[in-house]
Every structure is written in structure tokens, then in C-alpha cells.
Computed example of a mutant assay.
Amino acid sequence: MEETSLCVAIVILIMQCCPSLPVTVSTNKQKVEVHEFSDAVLSCMFRTERDQNPRIEWKKKGKDVSFVYFDGHFRGPFEGRASIEGATVTLRRVTQEDAGEYRCEISAPFDSVNLGETNITLKVLVPPNTPTCEIPSSAVTGSAVQLRCRDLQSIPPATYAWYKDNQLMIAPRHANATYLINTHTGVLEFKAVAKEDSGQYSCRASNGVGKPTKCEGRHMTIEDVNITAVVVAVVVVCLALLVCGCGGFLMHRNGFFTPGHRGRSFWISECHGAAHISSQNLNRTEDTSNVNYIPPPQEPQDFKHTQSFML
């Protein structure tokens, strides 16, 4: 009897001395990747010390923390398209708006440590769309040309490959190559195009999600430069500029650019000259007439008073 009492006392003492286990929360997959419009499972498992009915909350992190599951109901955009089993949430037909970081929180008020949480990252994969291709229709031999290909919606980002006349262009690895291909930016660059670079070009985008997509092929024509025609055109332009410059100088020198036009100035100057000559001739005539004319002598008159009487 004494031995039984001793064992019970030891068990009670051990229970009182041993630390209590707090609430624990875990997940079997912290990074979840699913294709767009498929279902995503966000696992959350927990264990409590005493509380048999803990509170379960799901939150989504972002600029602001928003509730996904709270007080036994889904909130906002998750309402009607999500389900929960235990603490594991299943989101149906996920889109890019669903991608982000989620947090599962378990609250057990009766436990010594009454809160536990775990984080899960959801990544929604998007297959490549038809890429946008920028292909010039023509170029001149010897010029630098860039062809561009881009798809901004694929997740993860797409890589690119170029085709000429439906034949895959191999990205060169030596420095003396006539063209370069950047598989990450989608740029096909020619340092100096030649006649043989003419052809139909297209670009393919792929990211390992879904099928690769290709833009519609476009033809690029490389044209030669007519050196003779360019030289003749330059000479003609220079001659035209020289003639115009000399003509303008002569016209300016002759007064065509002075107010009143040259013809008017000419006539005015001629009229002034004629008037001046006429004035000089008139003055000369007057002077001559004055020299040749001798006024008749005048007899002296006696202004004495005389009286005349009529008899």
C-alpha cells in the first residue's frame, strides 16, 4: 500500500515538473507551384497541448494583410471557390491574383503557448502567349539591325529562339559572328547585315509550362546601296547650292534685296540724274542770258515839281 502511494506521488511530481508542449503548426510543402486555372492545396497541420477546438485563421500577405479564412468562413475573393479540411485549404482555379505568400495561424487559448503559425508561398505558372515580334521589312547592306521578341505574361519568364526560313538559328559562341542572339531578352542583333541575310524570320517563346508559342513570320529584305547614285546626288546638290549662293550674292550686290526692288531704284536714280542735269542746264542758260543781256541806259529824271497850267 505504501509502495502504491509512493508511485502515484512520483508520477504526479513528474507531471508537474515536465514542461508542457506548446501548440505546433507545420506544413508538408512550403512552396507550392501550380498551373494557372488549376487547384492549389495549401497544407497546414497543427497539434495542441490541451485545447481541442483551436481557432484557425488564414491570411495573405501583400501591401496589406488580408483575411482568407476567419471565424469559420472564407472571405473576399476566396468565398465560394475554396474549401478547408482540418486546417488545410484548397483553392480552385487559381489565377495570378492568387499568387503570393500565405500564413496559417492556430490559436489555442487553453495552451501555455497559445499561438503557432507557418508560411506557404503560392506560385502560379503561366504558359507563354504568342510573343510580340519586331522585324524590319527592309535594311541596307552594312547597317546594324536588331530584331526583337518579347512575351511579358509568361511565368516563369520565357526564353527565346529565332528561326530563319523555318530553320533554327544557332546562337554563335565566337566573337567574330555576324549576328548575336540573347535567349533571355529575345534580341537578334546583326552587326552589319549582308545580302544573304534576307529571308523570313520568326521567334519562339517557351518556359517549360504548356506548349511553346511562335510569332508570325515576316520577311526582311536586305538592299544594296547604289554608290554611283549617291555620289551623283551629292554632286548635284552641291552644285545647286553653289549656284544659288552665287546668284544670291549677285542679286544682293545689284540691289535686288533692298527695299523697293532694283527696277524701281534704277528708275528713281535715273529720274534724279535727269532732273539734276536739267537743273544744271537751266542754270547755265540763265547765266548765259544774264551775261549777254545789257539793259538800256536810263536817262536821269528830274523829279522837281513842275506845274502845268491850262490856259
Rank of each mutant, 00 (worst) to 15 (best):
E2P: 01
L6P: 08
I10P: 00
V11W: 00
L13G: 07
L13F: 04
M15I: 13
C17M: 09
C18G: 13
P19G: 04
P22A: 04
P22N: 13
N28H: 03
Q30C: 04
E33Q: 11
A40Q: 07
V41Y: 02
S43H: 06
F46S: 14
R47Y: 05
T48P: 07
N53V: 06
N53A: 15
P54E: 09
I56A: 08
I56M: 13
K61V: 00
K61C: 07
S66K: 14
F67E: 08
G72Y: 07
G76M: 04
E79P: 02
G80V: 07
R81G: 09
S83A: 08
S83E: 06
E85M: 14
G86M: 08
A87W: 01
V89L: 11
R92M: 09
T95A: 00
D98G: 01
R103Q: 08
L115A: 11
L115I: 14
T118M: 01
T121H: 07
P128K: 10
P128L: 06
P128V: 08
N129L: 05
T130R: 08
T132Y: 10
S137H: 12
A139E: 11
S143D: 01
S143T: 03
Q146N: 04
Q146Y: 05
C149S: 12
D151F: 00
L152P: 01
L152M: 13
I155Y: 07
Y160Q: 00
K164P: 09
N166R: 15
A175C: 08
A175V: 15
A177Q: 13
T178Y: 07
L180I: 13
N182E: 04
N182L: 04
T183Q: 05
G186W: 04
L188M: 12
E189P: 11
E196I: 03
D197A: 03
S198D: 03
C203D: 02
A205D: 00
S206P: 06
T213C: 06
I222H: 04
D224A: 02
I227H: 04
I227P: 05
V230D: 11
V235C: 03
V236D: 08
V236P: 01
V236N: 12
L241R: 03
V243M: 03
V243Y: 02
C244F: 05
C244D: 04
F249Q: 11
F249P: 10
N254E: 09
F257V: 12
R262D: 15
G263S: 03
R264S: 06
I268W: 11
H272K: 15
G273N: 10
T285P: 01
E286T: 11
D302I: 10
T306L: 08
F309D: 10
M310F: 09
